[in-house]
């Protein structure tokens, strides 16, 4: 009994320590505003797809999307500032989208570390092909995939 207890206890320690702890899978790109395109002509919200859409930061040369057919955009926020401005281009038309937000440091878990959570304050836009913007859900939090804003287009 004693020998067996001893032997099995040591074995159990080895297996418990090494075996029962799973590492968590971490999500990336959790700092983007999720925006959907909707028709401005429809009485009810109707998804719309725009062709040849490009998106880039106003002070940037590299784009997030380049001439793609899209029904939604993921617009990344800047950790160092509280406002970002983007150019949204659809074929030959170009609009400016400016988003003001607040950020807060969060700690996800010991495996995934730190992130920022955001709260959208205001969205401004020009009117080349964007009719209006509605903020549906102000929070941008880790693990959530909720549409934040609706872009109503002509």
């Amino acid at each position: 009994m004693k020998f067996r207890t001893c032997l099995l206890a040591v074995t159990a320690i080895v297996f418990i320590t090494a075996g029962c702890e799973n590492e968590e899978a971490c999500l990336s790109n959790q700092h983007s505003v999720q925006a959907g395109f909707f028709s401005a002509w429809s009485q009810t919200d109707k998804d719309s797809t725009l062709n040849e859409v490009s998106l880039f930061g106003l002070e940037r040369e590299d784009s997030i999307y380049t001439r793609e057919s899209l029904s939604e955009l993921f617009i990344p926020l800047d950790f160092e500032r509280d406002t970002v401005s983007f150019a949204v281009v659809a074929r030959t038309m170009k609009d400016t989208l400016r988003i003001a937000y607040q950020k807060e440091l969060d700690f996800i878990s010991r495996d995934c570390g730190y992130i920022f959570s955001f709260q959208i304050d205001t969205v401004w836009h020009s009117n080349a092909f964007i009719d209006s913007v509605a903020i549906e859900y102000t929070d941008i939090k880790y693990g959530e995939t909720v549409e934040n804003i609706k872009l109503y287009i002509y």
Binding site: P76, D78, F116
Partner: peptide, 13 residues
């Protein structure tokens, strides 16, 4: 710590 941002640049704190 570093928080990665592929477009605007990583944050160091």
């Amino acid at each position: 710590y570093t928080i990665e941002n592929g477009y605007w640049g990583d944050f160091q704190g």
